[in-house]
Design a protein around this nucleic acid. Sequence first.
DNA 1: TCATTATTTGACAAATTGTCAATATAAAAT
DNA 2: ATTTTATATTGACAATTTGTCAAATAATGA
Lengths: 219, 219
Amino acid sequence: MSTQSKIDAIDSRGARQDQRRTESRQRLLAAARQLFVERGYHDTRPQDISRLAGVGHGTFYLYFSDKQACFRAFVEQAQAEVDSLIMKRLAVCRTHEERVYGVLEVSMDFTKANPGVLKAAWAGHQLMSSDDSGSATSLSIVEQWAERWAEVITRGQKAGLIWDDYDPKIIGYAVLMVTSVVSTGTREAWGDKEHFLTNLTRFVLRGLAAPGAGGALSS
Amino acid sequence: MSTQSKIDAIDSRGARQDQRRTESRQRLLAAARQLFVERGYHDTRPQDISRLAGVGHGTFYLYFSDKQACFRAFVEQAQAEVDSLIMKRLAVCRTHEERVYGVLEVSMDFTKANPGVLKAAWAGHQLMSSDDSGSATSLSIVEQWAERWAEVITRGQKAGLIWDDYDPKIIGYAVLMVTSVVSTGTREAWGDKEHFLTNLTRFVLRGLAAPGAGGALSS
DNA sequence: TCATTATTTGACAAATTGTCAATATAAAAT
DNA sequence: ATTTTATATTGACAATTTGTCAAATAATGA
């Protein structure tokens, strides 16, 4: 047996064992998600999560250092899901209108299909995030989203489509906050989906559009 | 002794006793605020709050049914403070520009003077708010703020200053979310106060302003 | 099969949260 | 001033929740 294969044998587990591990984690994460959304963070005990996942209580702590870590993992998973959907949608958008409406629609559809998940994820991000002052932490997904809007704005400015007196970082964050409105739970008072999304899209576009640009902001 | 005076004696406490009660509560609330902001919700124990407030551990539960109730009280207090400042400021505003800029400035000044408080309050509102489906709960302060913006928008529409194809409830919420950007902690990357506030104010005003209206939205 | 390693488990320990009988303080009555 | 009554506080204690680890179980490779 070569040295290489020895090393392989050490850090690559058997397929069955590996599958078991990832399955356990997924089951725990799915259970955590359901309970955190249903009952909220406080009324969800690691015990409950383990039971619903069908694993022993101790197993919980094999995959999450503590309850907070589990919650963070839940938030990250939810955000990654939405992020993936948004990226797919943005890939086929050509105008700013399509982009804004697209992101809103994706977020809204996700919220309908997964009530409470995005809301909890948004709130959690803020409440959990500690200062970490000093350490160069990588950008959170929320900051990444803001950064992406900033890039969109910068490009729009270069094309003369967006007011060039805007600071892209600031307005990028502002646009992001507007899009977060859709995850505030489904409000009946806000009318149907089309009405709701059209309103928000108009507000953002009118806020961005430079005077010269035509009615529709073409990419 | 008349029946009335008996009743008075029962439900009106002595002044000294009453003062003691409210003082205890205030001390607890101030301690809770400091610790919730400094260490976050999880790393703050009722014990710690009591100790910092200089009262016994049991006293905590005389004023708050549990830890969550204490946190809610903290959030409400912080929101009420900001609300009071905002109302004072709005009272002297005549144009929409003054209103938007004013609310942003008040929020930002508060955030500078009380780092982390508004951020925690915002996040807390969302994470703590349970569904309470069925019960007719009064509007939360956040919903009240959104409602106020909605009224501003409705008036602006009637005066022909704001796009009349907007649903005030929806856009009111959107404006609120934009204003919440200032409580996301002080970002150095966002430049100085004037730069930051001017950017956000412009974005909101341009999003609102009807085509006919002059550059500055006069009330 | 059997030795070795990886994974799971639930009883247990630690920490946190919440309760209450005892105590202290203030107000009212005599 | 003293007693009585009502109110407020306290910290030891109980209940719950969170986290650990030695023992048990399952998978791997020879």
